[in-house]
Amino acid sequence: MDCTRLAEVLSEARGRQEVFRRALTALEEAGVIRCGEAYWVGESLSLLQMQACRANCSLAPWSRALAEEALRQGTRVERDGFVALPLRQGSRTLAVLVLKLELGQKIPEALPALLLLALRRPGLELSGRLLWAQEEERRRVGRELHDGVGSLLTAALLTLKVAERRPEQLAEARRRVAEALEEVRRLSRELRMPLLDDLGLKEALKRYLEEYRKGGVEVEAHLEIPPLPKEKEVALFRVVQEALTNTLRHAQAQRVQVRLWREGDRLFGVVADDGVGFDPEKTPASVGMLGMQERIQGLGGSLLVHSVPGQGTRVEFGVPL
């Protein structure tokens, strides 16, 4: 593996979670690992999961136990193709990586040193959190304004131009302006997220799915959601919402399945439809897809989109609790 390239990738990370995400992604793209997870060592040697695998990952059931063993021993632990690698600074273990190696591959010798250099950058964690939170909220509001309010106001403006010559079109122009006003009110409600504040993620998703069914798509839902911090509930609601919006706009689906469930110390989710699908290799990532990735990665998790033309689309994600 080209460790010079790995160093460049890590130097661009804006936060602690992004350091681990970039490292694991680079190792996977280079064919060194099949998947990987990362844990930060907190007070009293507690393990805080910073980066999690997806629901279909064979590493997930064994990851924490291997990380705990590596933490206790302070040395590398290997089990059946899995490797737990502690990152040590002097006598202290800062973090533990748990990796599923590809057959015949080895962990680059420079990996621990490069990670420690990236993690010691001054102000890394604070600047990363602030930048991510600010940029993500700007992107989301920008998408909503462009796709919703902007389109409606453009239509209203065109109708008003026609009405200059044909006054009977004024009623249609008023109707379009009223639609834009209602869209602004809807966006305001969603920014405040009153359902989440009052009822929590499970009930908010139930209410949202009741409205979603009115779009003509049959919905099968299985929601087993434990109590979560508010910021995690908001992020997960937005991810499910975006996946369902994409289904309604593009998939031409008859049925969609929504599942969220807990396994051990993580929460998994799936949004799958029976629509027209697409070829991920030939279709550029949309702003919505990038937003979903950013939200899940901001929680220390991973998201994967499976799709084949004519065979529907499946969005999978997993996040640490």
Rank of each mutant, 00 (worst) to 15 (best):
F82V: 06
A110V: 02
Q73C: 07
L205K: 02
L299F: 04
L158F: 07
T247E: 06
G300A: 05
Q257N: 04
G90Q: 05
E69I: 06
L303E: 03
G312L: 01
R54H: 08
G81Q: 10
G42K: 03
R138V: 15
A38I: 02
K161G: 15
R64V: 04
Y212R: 06
E68N: 09
A171C: 07
K206E: 13
S127E: 15
V184A: 15
P122N: 10
V276P: 00
P194I: 10
E37T: 13
G150C: 06
L152M: 10
V9G: 00
K206T: 14
E231W: 08
L236F: 08
P280R: 01
E183P: 10
E18H: 04
E68F: 06
V141L: 15
F317E: 00
V256G: 01
C53T: 09
R213M: 09
E144W: 13
R34C: 07
T159V: 08
G123D: 06
A70K: 02
H250P: 03
S188P: 01
P108Q: 01
G104C: 05
E179A: 15
R120C: 11
L152N: 03
E136D: 15
R213L: 08
A173C: 13
R259K: 11
E218R: 12
A272L: 10
Q105W: 00
L115N: 03
E316A: 05
A7S: 11
R21W: 12
L111I: 04
E168N: 07
L205D: 00
L47T: 08
A84F: 07
P309C: 11
R140Y: 14
E78A: 12
R238N: 12
A65M: 08
T313D: 01
A133L: 14
L103Y: 02
H222Y: 11
L103W: 03
L209Q: 04
G42Q: 03
V319S: 01
G298M: 04
Q105A: 11
S91R: 14
E179C: 12
H306L: 13
E190T: 09
S46R: 15
L191P: 07
V177H: 05
A253Y: 01
E18Q: 13
P112L: 04
A204T: 05
T247S: 14
F317V: 08
F237K: 10
G104A: 06
G148D: 08
I107D: 00
V162C: 08
Q254V: 05
V270C: 11
V305D: 01
W40S: 10
E210Q: 14
T313I: 02
F237L: 14
G142I: 07
R5D: 04
E294M: 11
V271N: 03
N246G: 11
A285Y: 00
V315G: 00
R314Q: 08
R54Q: 07
R185H: 14
V98C: 02
V276A: 06
E210C: 10
M50P: 00
R262H: 05
A118P: 12
K206I: 13
A95S: 14
L236V: 12
L321K: 02
R192S: 12
G215T: 05
G298L: 03
A272Q: 11
A13K: 03
L304D: 03
T93Q: 07
L199G: 04
R207N: 05
F20N: 01
R21G: 09
G81I: 10
A178N: 13
Y212N: 01
E164T: 15
L116Y: 12
Q297P: 01
Q134L: 15
E294T: 14
A110T: 04
R54L: 09
M50Q: 05
L196M: 07
L199I: 03
E233D: 01
L205R: 02
T245W: 11
